[in-house]
């Protein structure tokens, strides 16, 4: 057995990373298709605010973060649904508000410390068994949600009005998606950190959209790319002694570049085979 698998903490890191790699793109597909990629970033900053509050008050930081992201996700959706603010403005307002509050709290708590650093940049190697169980539980919920409500989610992402006239409860589906995204971000913080968690939600999806045909196929491929990125990234990080979060995201970017190359080559090939079609 390779050395890496003999350490409990590495096994936990790899399993946790793979689970996050699975659930982030599973939600990401529907966010990217609805052009809501930025919601991940906004909620990540809300999670950071939650962590700051948790560290300041010495409560369970991921728990506080989970609460604040859920509330923020609901607030963002309500602002959109009631058309009080356009979608992108609502996201920006929430992002900056949360970041400002986080910065203020951190300054009150006399600056950065090791814990906060871990949440910002990820600390997959310090994942506790509790963290792992939380991530595993969430992964089950997300996979069940996406498979149970696949039709509703895909219709809502295609055209909300069309979905409504089919009888889909669009607002409810959107809110559930936003809240789960908040939860996924909170629990993914350990792996890639607040600053990079959005990347894991968006980049595997963008790569799969380049090459897959069909919504189901795209979702499955995005999840596969997410899992592989996490696995390869964490293994590289272990052997090269570099930050795991960064390595995971860079591997995902690698997949994106390969996907771009693939679709470019396919288009070229089609043109040389059927030059009249161009």
């Amino acid at each position: 057995m390779p050395e890496i698998f003999t350490y409990d903490f590495m096994v936990r890191a790899i399993i946790g990373g793979a689970l996050v790699g699975l659930l982030a793109p599973a939600l990401g597909v529907f966010l990217v298709l609805r052009r809501l990629s930025l919601i991940a970033d906004s909620l990540a900053h809300v999670a950071l605010m939650g962590v700051a509050i948790g560290l300041l008050t010495r409560t369970f930081a991921p728990g506080v973060a989970l609460g604040t992201t859920s509330l923020a996700a609901l607030a963002i959706e309500q602002l959109r649904i009631r058309r009080m603010l356009p979608g992108d403005v609502a996201l920006a307002v929430v992002l900056y508000c949360a970041l400002a509050i986080a910065v203020v709290i951190i300054s009150v708590a006399s600056g950065f410390n090791v814990d906060l650093f871990g949440y910002l940049f990820g600390s997959v190697l310090t994942m506790s068994p509790t963290d792992l169980w939380l991530v595993a539980g969430l992964a089950v919920v997300v996979v069940l949600f996406v498979t149970f409500f696949f039709s509703e989610l895909s219709q809502t992402s295609f055209d909300p009005d069309l979905a409504r006239t089919s009888g889909v409860r669009v607002n409810l589906v959107s809110m559930a998606l936003a809240v789960l995204t908040g939860a996924a971000i909170t629990l993914s913080m350990r792996v890639v950190g607040v600053l990079l968690v959005g990347a894991l939600i968006v980049i595997p999806v963008m790569a799969s959209l380049r090459v897959a045909t069909g919504l189901r196929a795209s979702a499955l491929l995005a999840m596969a790319i997410g899992v592989l990125s996490s696995f390869i990234g964490i293994v590289i990080a272990y052997y090269a002694n570099i930050a795991a979060g960064g390595a995971v995201v860079l591997v995902a970017v690698g997949f994106l570049i390969v996907a771009f190359g693939w679709s470019w080559a396919k288009a070229k090939l089609r043109m040389t085979r059927h030059p009249e079609a161009s």
């Binding site: 039709s151 799969s208 919504l215």
Partner: peptide, 20 residues
């Protein structure tokens, strides 16, 4: 990414289906 078939299949929606 949806295919023509997948888009048309959305039209058959008759309420939540866990195995969709």
């Amino acid at each position: 990414p949806a295919t023509a078939y997948e888009v048309v299949s959305q039209g058959t929606y008759r309420g939540p289906d866990p195995l969709a």
